[in-house]
Design a protein around this nucleic acid. Structure first.
Lengths: 191, 191
DNA sequence: TGCATGCGAGACATGAGTGTCTCAATTTGG
DNA sequence: CCAAATTGAGACACTCATGTCTCGCATGCA
């Protein structure tokens, strides 16, 4: 019998494999199970023991992404304080996982998994609530819907991650680039 | 002997097939050659006669995307007049092909094709030049690099196309949503 | 020491997508 | 109207990723 009951948790090795898989698929979304196994330092058989099939792996990846992002929403305390500063904190927290998020963003396969879908629903709701709060305080524009601001935020975070990986933007500048553009736009301040 | 010399041009049928393929792959990036052939209304054999292999098809698609976008840069006359209005015209022109652009954006395979790469180089150069021109006229912020503004523009266009397809944003609002956010940001106007 | 569990390595079958070919039917142009 | 070209349909082999299995080895525990 197994030494561990997988009651919601997972073994250390399994989680490590998952993180390696995330790192690889972030760089190469079409990597084969064999490549993933090699990158994770386990055999293909073991990879398949942990995740019976590519679907299971991608689903676990999706759940990991939701979990990580929710942790970062917590860390950024986006429901507290000045909405503008909350947006800046959110961007700062989300930037390190921008590549991973960009990968999950393009994985249409995940839209059928109810668990993942409701996870993204929770995230969207929290982020939209932040934008709504800013609007109600008269800080954010009313003519841009929270839903659109939400998507725009995701898109800019993903794009900046891509730029950093491509050398177009310095890693230390990326959060500022996203924050300044999203909050203030590209026009110079009116005097 | 063939009725036509393919000196740079392509037959009407071939171009029609290419456009159908673009439309399908925009919706389903992993469509098989068989699905593409059916969607284009030709047999798999004919599809393969036009484009010897999936690589050739994707390359032709990349070239088509570059060609279309350059036409729209011309139509928007982005090197003329007020930079702010030029950006608005550019967004208005590019919006109808946002889905197709989003597909090409995620096709890493194209980065090895010199012809496509230099096409995107030309496009990036023209768009960056527009942003630089706006900066030099004191209209655009200096602390956001043209390269980043470029990528942000692409990302927002792709995101808005996605939002429209998803029903989150009305089709006629999409250009304004992108333009307002990119140019003015999400903060309310300072009095 | 002996036993059990987990892992790595590899063989094997399967299915999907692909590239190539043939042949009959249709269209096109002289 | 005939001949050439093009197309559609289908057969065929090949590749690759995948899923499954077995077996030998190592590590850990009693």
């Amino acid at each position: 019998m197994s030494r561990m009951h997988y009651s919601g948790l997972m073994s250390f090795d399994r989680e490590q494999v998952l993180r390696e898989a995330a790192a690889l698929l972030t760089r190469k979304a079409t990597a084969s199970m064999d490549e993933i196994a090699k990158a994770a330092g386990v055999s293909r058989a073991t990879l398949h023991r942990y995740f019976p099939g590519r679907d299971a792996l991608v689903r676990a990846l999706g759940a990991l992404g939701v979990e990580q992002l929710e942790e970062r929403l917590d860390a950024a305390r986006i429901e507290e304080g000045d909405p503008v500063e909350a947006v800046r904190r959110l961007i700062g927290e989300a930037m390190p996982v921008s590549g991973f998020l960009a990968f999950l963003y393009g994985e249409n396969q995940l839209y059928d998994v109810a668990e993942i879908d409701e996870g993204w629903g929770r995230i969207d709701e929290r982020v939209s609530a932040l934008f709504r709060r800013g609007q109600e305080q008269g800080l954010f524009r009313y003519d841009l819907s929270p839903a659109w601001l939400c998507e725009a935020l995701y898109a800019l975070i993903a794009a900046s991650g891509w730029c950093v990986q491509d050398g177009k933007v310095a890693s230390r500048d990326s959060a500022r680039m996203v924050g300044e553009l999203l909050l203030g736009g590209m026009l110079r301040e009116r005097s």
